[in-house]
Design a protein around this nucleic acid. Structure first.
Lengths: 208, 208, 208, 208
DNA sequence: CGATAAGCGAGACGGTACGTCGAGTCTTGTA
DNA sequence: TACAAGACTCGACGTACCGTCTCGCTTATCG
């Protein structure tokens, strides 16, 4: 049973240099100024590219930004896998906090939020992206539970959302710190509760 | 010698009916469809009002929406002040969750987020608004601490932001429930940790 | 020393089927709808041909149309050479009128005019094409003059342009008929005047 | 029975200065260069006006040009009404020839033709405009016929179209002169024929 | 027979102009 | 002076064609 030989490809191939130039331009513009003027026209002009070339490959401005984020700033939050759940979780949270506040990433994240507010399609993409991030954290917690460091009844989804909820809330409003001590205290809070799961109201089955 | 009584008033007075019509129209449009087409032109047209009349009294579209939210849907989250901190907190959280998901409020909140992403002025207003909400919750916690129900070292700001962070995170993404059981578990988590404050790393001075 | 015999030929030969398909597609599209959407892309797509294949052989869209016109509809206006100048002229005019109003030709002519308005290169081609048409009519008149049926001072160029002028004017605007009676009356007008050339102001030398 | 009092007018009035600036800019651009770059954007920019203001009042670029032509260059071909039909006709034709070849008018006419080729709406407008021009010439001829200077059977429509046909044909192609001698010879041709109407095949009733 | 040289379908590329939308401002006449 | 109406400038939007440029492949001719 061989492959249906869909089509070996025909026509000119995508210009990788143009792709890079567009992502670069998007990052540069998102980082500059107050984030206004992140326009498709501006991105295309800054990349030395026709507008159509942007629209050919991305459905919206925000999709470009998201792509830029994943390509350029996505590889930084790694799971350390060192020792106790407490250490792992604290490290994960602190790294997440820190990474988001570095210079290009922060601007892109804000630009993404700005765009996703208008563009339902981007909102969808962003939702999918955040889901993968949640999944990573969820897996981390699950490994801890498997090692007996969490009560079996612990609501992992809630724990995950408490981390990312706090993160986004402070990131957007900027009224409170997202630093290492905060990561430490947040971790302690979550584990203090989940370690006493017997006294907690039982969460959902959480079979995943 | 006090102010020279400059002029009691001259010219036509503000038309209260127009104000109401504008807020109504804003709510109606924000609730309708997917929330797109909440335009100043659309609001003015729907309210049977000139655009200038909107701009005369509000600095931006978002300010109109925020005003509508406060006028129409703002008075519902009250602090019960009944019994233990645990009950008070659970009630507050559950009420917050519920109120935000009712029909006109939910749409307006989403419209507000959408606008605040673009409009820095509205972002400022919204920040001030959320600050008042945080202050209410902070006061609630502080009363509890005064009654000895919280460790003295507890980071109240962190607790507040965990509540609102989870709320906004789930409200925006819609991937998890914001129901009474969730409120219950969240409350339990927060208090389980804060009751053992002695074992927590000490938070900031929290002098407010 | 003649041409350096550059190279007899090498490589693949021109695909005649593609040529025909392109001309067919051009005619079909020019005839369809209101004539809009006669695009190079559309022609190429309709002909199942790459755009480059069009540009390889024709300098512009209009050149394709002109080629189609000459190939498909060009051979119909013949000079009868039967009897008197009056009869010949009337026949020529009537045939010209009729031929232009037949179905594929009419649409292509209009499409050509449309394109030539934009494309200076096509305008040039079209000018050359109309010049050959004028030359045919001019020769017909000259033969008549040689037979003594026209005054020697007659301005043949003016007569030619009166025929084609009337034709194009009515063809484009469509406000008056281009039928046999019109051809008859036009012929009579021209000959009535040119038969009395002695009383006319003398025209240019008309040496051609 | 009074008027239905449609509306006394409300809202800001049309800015006449903007209208003039747009027409001026259109003429200027049409006259400059080779006529390319007569763009809506360019007109708006040159007029110091938003694009929307152009679109608010004219359906297309060509409509602007036509308006400019009528406003600025339309008042020049007047009917002299001096003496014989021959003199009147010659004068009319010569003036028409001359006016069209003066500097701003010529460019605008060419730009109009260019646009009308693409824009069916403009083609319609242009058709209406040419009809009014034909009507003027038709009236001139009719007065001559009433004075007995034309045969009663003369096909006035044909005569009119011979004048304008020759004019447009030479104006567009530019292969022959549109000067006073040409006007003189054309006039002579037309009148030579129409003066002998008895020998012409009878035209249409021409009852207008 | 292989090397070389086009021609070909497909389609991505940098551009330019299009016509529309929404924003915030301004100018009318009326109340 | 507020108001309804609506014209104004500005700037971004997403689309349509233009003419050019690769791709991988298919023919042809020539050494």
């Amino acid at each position: 049973m061989d492959t249906p030989e869909p089509r070996p490809h025909t026509g000119r191939r995508r210009n990788e240099a143009a792709r890079q130039a567009i992502l670069d331009a998007a990052l540069r513009l998102a980082g500059a100024a107050d984030g206004a003027s992140v326009t498709i026209d501006a991105i295309a002009r800054a990349a030395g590219v026709g507008k159509q070339t942007v629209y050919r490959w991305w459905p919206s401005k925000g999709a470009v930004l998201l792509d830029a984020l994943i390509d350029r700033a996505g590889q930084d939050v790694t799971v350390p896998d060192a020792g106790t759940l407490h250490d792992e979780l604290r490290s994960f949270v602190a790294t997440t906090f820190e990474a988001a506040q570095q210079d290009p990433t922060s601007a892109v994240l804000r630009a993404l939020l700005r765009e996703s507010a208008r563009d339902p399609h981007l909102a969808d993409l962003l939702q999918r992206y955040t889901a993968t991030r949640r999944a990573v954290l969820h897996a981390l917690l699950e490994r801890g539970r498997a090692r007996g460091e969490l009560a079996t009844g612990a609501d992992l989804d809630l724990m995950v959302d408490q981390v990312y909820g706090l993160f986004w809330y402070r990131f957007v409003l900027g009224h409170g710190p997202l630093d290492a001590p905060t990561a430490e205290r947040l971790t302690a809070t979550l584990l203090a509760a989940a370690g006493q799961a017997g006294r907690l109201p039982s969460g959902p089955a959480d079979a995943d």
